[in-house]
Amino acid sequence: MPAKATRVSFGEALEELGEKIPDIVVLDADLSKSTMSIKFAKKFPERFFEMGIAEQNMIGTAAGLALAGKIPFACSFACFLIGRYETIRMSVAYTNANVKLVGTHAGIGIGEDGYSQMGLEDIALMRALPNVSVVQPCDDIETKQAVEYIATHEGPVFLRLTRQALEDVNPPDYKFNFGKGVVLKDGKDVTIFATGGVVFNSLLAAEELEKDGISARVVNIHTIKPIDEELVIKCAIETGRIVTVEDHNIVGGLGSAVMEVLSENYPVKVKRIGIKKFGESGSPKALYEKYGLDAKSIAKTVREFLK
């Protein structure tokens, strides 16, 4: 299959699910053409609510819809959703409203638009809220299954999606298992935990490392919260060293989640790869090279870490 952005996979999945699950309703804040909720909007106009550029009200309205039995998907860029954190904290998390928050355009991978449109702190903030789960799929098939799972999962979920197209990582018979990490490649010298758009790059990096005689295990963490503690500990026991890769600030994201588990259970050395400051404008390719998220940079960081 050609590379596809997870927001596109999401739009397709939602359009299909709308048929099966009549309680699904969708809200967007003037970005439906970008979040891809437009596909649902066209097919089910009576269940789609254009809320205008007013995300707080969109999130609160979604909470109300959920309290009345609907399954609302509230969509915007990840950065704009977390900008309304207090509404998410009270109206969604503390109310325990069954809202699905869909944050697209996550990471520096969005490219030219620059930092203001990049979701870079969203995992950290969402992860801190009790009741809220955090899911970030890495390819088309995983996204579609994750969306279907989330629709029937009871409780608030933050779904993090990419703007940029992603190569397929999982096989056609893949089965999404909420809360469970996926070992994509086995290895014994180091485990690379990756999430979202950089899972594929981590796999390429592992192949490159193989040529240097380094055996790297690659694990896709699609459910960042609740994280697969058992697998994280198992990998630390079996490979010793751990590397985390994410297109997100290194504070509070996947790297932090992995380190929290390991510090309390099985302390080993961990190297976090992620964004340390703000992003900037540029082509996604140029940005990944500059910020160390392309396969070559990941391999280099792992090599140095293992020295």
Partner: peptide, 8 residues
């Protein structure tokens, strides 16, 4: 906003 969602 919540009341509006329930009304919707």
């Amino acid at each position: 906003s919540i009341a509006q969602g329930i009304a919707l």
